[in-house]
Design a protein around this nucleic acid. Structure first.
Lengths: 87, 87
DNA sequence: GCGGATTTGTACGTATGTATG
DNA sequence: GCATACATACGTACAAATCCG
């Protein structure tokens, strides 16, 4: 349900940070398990009503943090827990 | 002289990788010394005839590598040599 | 194996906000 | 007050590889 995790458009916080927090939590909570794919960029666009710029910025952050790996023409998958930041 | 470091538009290599290589070499060669500012994004745009998207992508790479630090509303400066990648 | 749909990557343009100088 | 400079965010287009019926 996208509306459980709405992007606050009045917020000072950039959309890509809000969305990164939302997706990061879903991963940590096990809603998307290691090895499983995240929704595609276009799907995330529709789900959250955000531009692809924001979606890609967000996915870049999660990848940098070690939560996900994005492969060209394939998609983005959740990495093993040992690759996540500790604590 | 921009034309000494032209972007090869026929190349397979993305523009932002070509430009990153060019600017990285200028830094390593001491053409822009630590503490000194890089040209502004709009200046780089005009100098190389590239979009701001490519310029920012490039500067992001150099910053990730430790060569530069970009500060909002200020500009991008070259970091001390000890922050650069070794060898 | 073919062909279309999907998906990510690169690249462009524009607009607006905000802090700096 | 005004110009500069970076940050965010929207849009579009095309390429190339992959996936799938």
């Amino acid at each position: 349900m996208p509306d459980q995790d709405p992007i606050e458009r009045w917020s000072e916080e950039p959309y890509f940070l809000q969305l990164a927090r939302i997706l990061r939590r879903q991963i940590v909570n096990g809603e998307i398990e290691p090895g499983m794919p995240l929704p595609s960029e276009s799907h995330l666009q529709q789900e959250y009503g955000l531009s692809r710029w924001v979606i890609r910025r967000t996915l870049g952050i999660l990848a940098d943090e070690g939560y996900t790996r994005t492969v060209a023409k394939r998609g983005t998958v959740v990495r093993p827990r040992e690759d996540w930041p500790e604590s």
